[in-house]
Design a protein around this nucleic acid. Structure first.
Lengths: 257, 257
DNA sequence: TGAATAGTGTCTTTAAGACAGTATATC
DNA sequence: GATATACTGTCTTAAAGACACTATTCA
């Protein structure tokens, strides 16, 4: 049942900060679809964003990274803080309360035990290439799956809002900074990066105007190779110019589509 | 000494969330200057942003509002979350540790007491009209003063970074949303709002281009009155069109100067 | 009437947006 | 050579940026 999301915290509470956690909205892109990684206690019908508590020895960024790694097995993903969430009502529908615990475990916890206080969630989002991920269902009772952002299951806590805000932040980010290094193979085609942008923004982008502006940023370089895709003309391959890309991440690049 | 910043938390720790706090960078505008409200334990030379802990019964936004009110006496100020800060090193130079406490109070606190764990700060910034504020020096041992953002005193923790990030967020905000309702009197002149924008952005704005775009947003309305300022031509007074202003806050208004 | 600040308009340049026909790889 | 997708260029429109003179108040 749903308590598993708190288990490490319950086993070794002294290793973690109290009343504060990291929730990491892991976005996966693959084959023109934008998905989000969710987990679910098998016996419940509500899902959650991947999240966890913060070790006293790590930063909130370390925690976000560790949480992403624990589910995807990937390190050095691009991630970004977007907003924090905290109000006494945010966990009320979670079923996590003294009455429930006492029913389920024959414990005798008082209602005002600190563990039932609400916690503040620091929201991050992470970008990853979908097909590179081998989902880790660490706990046997937890289901873990990709869901398309336009068709989400019922979500626990305020996680529907959390995902909506993460997506909003991602779409704002993409208008001011380059994106794609973590989401595309080392060599990619124009149609591929074009689809990536269309998918993340959720709307069509005129390819001529898109390309004009993308090339103006100089973050991609044309290679002298083409990719055979069968049946018709082969597109040229491109790669990111990493120094320009990183400079764009630092100082901003206007790609306001 | 510097312990006072934690005092309410120490007196009644059960009323507050642990390991998480709100820091509220209170910006004050007055007479073409942008200032930030800082407080300081009198016996120390380092200052801090106004901050405090979160009651278990309130949201993080409530906490930010309460903190601003406790120092300025003003309610319903414009405030905005901008980023959270959390890493084990952020409080190391604060002098807040078991050895220090034991020296100062003849207590016998162990080094690993939870109260010395680092805490996560949820950063907000607040905007207020400088001259409306009567500073409240709640605790006799705390100094409280306005400092111009370009000339800050030595700051505790990572508060220098916190202020820099708040200012960055404010400048980003001003490019996409209207600002000024909380910072200008009900009736104000074009030179006044022009100066406000110049001050916040820290650079000059051509008044003709500025006005063209400001008027295009329709968030201000010309009144049939002028303000006598002595010695020369009197500027017309304007007021905000609150519905348009609020709609701009909601949906964004392009004022990218 | 002079000093000081308010207030206004045009031209140039740049970027955004709309739009369609040609090129080429593969079958 | 038929098909499917890659690739390219121009025109129109809107916004940004640069720039300077006239108007008004009051001392």
């Amino acid at each position: 049942m749903e308590l598993n999301i708190l288990e490490p915290y319950l086993w070794e509470p002294d290793k973690y900060l109290r009343n504060v956690a990291v929730d990491n909205v892991i976005f996966g892109y693959h084959d023109k679809e934008l998905k989000v990684l969710l987990q679910k206690p098998i016996v419940l019908e509500k899902w959650t964003v991947t999240g966890g508590y913060i070790l006293k020895t790590e930063s909130i960024e370390d925690a976000a990274d560790r949480i992403a790694f624990s589910r995807t097995g990937l390190k050095n993903l691009f991630f970004q803080q977007f907003r924090s969430f905290g109000n006494p009502e945010r966990t009320v529908d979670s079923g996590f309360n003294a009455r429930r615990i006492n029913e389920l475990t024959n414990a005798q916890m008082p209602d005002d035990c600190w563990i039932f206080d609400y916690f503040v969630s620091i929201g991050f989002y992470t970008l990853t290439e979908f097909s590179a991920v081998e989902l880790k269902k660490a706990e046997i009772e937890t289901d873990c799956a990709w869901w398309t952002v336009n068709d989400l299951p019922p979500l626990m806590f305020d996680h529907k809002l959390l995902i909506a805000e993460a997506l909003k932040a991602l779409r704002l980010h993409i208008a001011h900074y380059p994106i794609g290094y973590e989401l595309l193979p080392g060599k990619f085609t124009i149609p591929e990066i074009h689809s990536l942008y269309e998918t993340i923004l959720g709307r069509q982008l005129d390819i001529r105007n898109f390309l004009r502006r993308l090339l103006a940023t100089e973050i991609i370089e044309k290679l002298n190779e083409t990719k055979s895709i069968g049946g018709h003309r082969s597109p040229f391959l491109y790669k990111f110019n990493k120094p320009k890309y990183d400079e764009g991440l630092e100082n901003g690049v206007l790609l306001s589509f």
